[in-house]
Amino acid sequence: MAINSLGDYVHINKDAVENFHGNQVVYIHWDNHNMFTAAAAFPLPPEMPFGALLEEVIPSIFASHPEYEKLKWDKVKWILDDEDFIPNTGVSLKDNGIGHKSLLRFITPELTGVGGSGN
């Protein structure tokens, strides 16, 4: 449905990727760990290697969770923009198909939050 307006409607895409100074926005969330209430948003260079997400980006938010130290990256299930996803840690976000405003979720079937409560 098109917008109903008096005159021509000016199109302004406030969050076009060009506005982020070479970065793209990536959202990351750890499923069933809702004491982090929402996915975290990051401005990241598309050329950043996926491995850096695991080593730097993800721990910057989630390492304070008591289950974090039990987390084994080789047992993690990934979902990228609602599709199952197997990352290649050696290549860039872009080459992994992670785009501007992509949502990346990781699921740890053995770790289900504090007392199994999803928190």
């Binding site: 959202y27 982090f36 929402a38 975290a40 948003a41 304070s64 949502l103």
Partner: peptide, 16 residues
């Protein structure tokens, strides 16, 4: 939360 949250494009509330 040592970062910033994903927001809803419409209501602008963090996606919780």
């Amino acid at each position: 939360f040592k970062g910033l949250p994903q927001l809803c494009q419409t209501c602008q509330i963090p996606m919780f």
